[in-house]
């Protein structure tokens, strides 16, 4: 058997797998999420858990766009999440307004502008920023915001804002339950589809190239940092949307919603599920929140939960950096192929 012949089956197998696994995982996940409220009709606490998973999945996807696709190590996604949650809470309290058709876009706008401002400082300098610089910059922003809010009486200081006005559409108000779940699922599917379209477009090819060799792209003529700033801002808008839904669903927001703790949790969701896949962060969120829910009745575990999460992150980074999905999805499928779509 010559070399070419011996390589052929392996190549065919690799390509065959590359274009089947992710769509399959996406479809199964969607089917499970659509069926969940029907299957869990008599377990309202699980519907609430699932709704939280959907909302936090948006935050995890926002991090995946930053890190998994654009190489921006953001430890500050909770900043955009938390600030937007405070904004819709204040709009409800001070303006007595909570119509979702206005407040959810407002939350996205707040996230977009705030992340755009941060991108201007961190990404658009004359020198190319290092990953460490961006990681510490975003982490510092989140920490500073958490401390600021914790001492600001107008926004409830350390107690946060509770009894947030219910999300409404016309005269219909949404409390936690199947209706809220359906809205959250619809928004997650829409954000997922738009994000998928973005990362598989020719712009997505630029992002994939940037992650591998940004200097090469600069010499092609790309304004690499401007592309990074754009994706960071879009991710900020998604985090803002997530924060608004979370505040409406919980009826509460507090300083911890914009600090490094939640930001790091979003990193864990994404890395655990598999960064650079979009669906991986959804599965990672479901796994982490599901385990947390199951173990929440045990006091000892609840106390040490952050430590356990830290170990999970450590183990994933050391032994399975491509996350759970990396076990079944090839690098080629994760990065994507534009050649296959040229004809």
């Amino acid at each position: 058997m010559d070399a070419a012949t011996s390589l052929a089956p392996a190549t065919a197998k690799r390509r065959g797998r590359a274009f089947r696994v992710l769509p399959g995982v996406e479809l199964i996940t969607l089917a499970a999420l659509v069926a969940a409220p029907f299957l869990l009709a008599d377990r309202p606490e699980l519907v609430t858990l699932m709704t939280n998973i959907l909302i936090l999945s948006l935050l995890a996807i926002s991090f995946d766009l930053c890190w998994g696709y654009s190489g921006i190590m953001s430890f500050g996604q909770a900043l955009f999440f938390g600030v937007s949650s405070y904004v819709i809470a204040l709009v409800g309290r001070d303006l007595d307004f909570s119509q979702l058709w206005a407040t959810l876009p407002l939350a996205m706008l707040v996230g977009f502008l705030l992340s755009g401002l941060m991108a201007a400082f961190l990404l658009l300098g004359r020198r190319t920023p290092t990953s460490i610089f961006v990681a510490f910059g975003t982490l510092t922003g989140a920490y500073a915001a958490e401390r600021l809010v914790a001492g600001w009486q107008y926004v409830g200081a350390g107690n946060g804002l509770s009894s947030i006005k219910l999300m409404a559409f016309g005269s219909t108000e949404f409390v936690e339950g199947p209706a809220f779940y359906s809205i959250a699922l619809g928004i997650l599917v829409a954000v997922f589809a738009l994000s998928r379209w973005l990362v598989r477009s020719q712009l997505g090819l630029v992002l994939a190239g940037m992650r591998q060799n940004e200097e090469r792209l600069a010499f092609f003529g790309y304004r690499v940092q401007a592309f990074r700033a754009l994706v960071f801002s879009v991710a900020g808008a998604i985090a803002g949307l997530s924060g608004a839904l979370y505040a409406y669903h919980q009826g509460f927001t507090g300083p911890s919603n914009l600090g490094p703790g939640l930001s790091t949790t979003a990193v864990i969701y994404c890395l655990f599920g598999g960064s650079g896949t979009l669906i991986g962060p959804v599965l990672g969120t479901a796994a982490i929140e599901g385990i947390s829910f199951v173990l929440s009745d045990t006091d000892a575990v609840r106390q040490f939960w952050p430590v356990i999460l830290g170990f999970v992150l450590l183990i994933v980074v050391m032994f399975q950096p491509t996350g759970l999905l990396g076990l079944v999805v090839s690098t080629r499928e994760r990065i994507g192929s534009y050649a296959g779509r040229r004809r």
Binding site: A208, S337, A339
Partner: peptide, 9 residues
């Protein structure tokens, strides 16, 4: 070259 992208890409 960008090793994880196809030659075409």
């Amino acid at each position: 070259v960008l090793p994880e992208l196809s030659v075409y890409d």
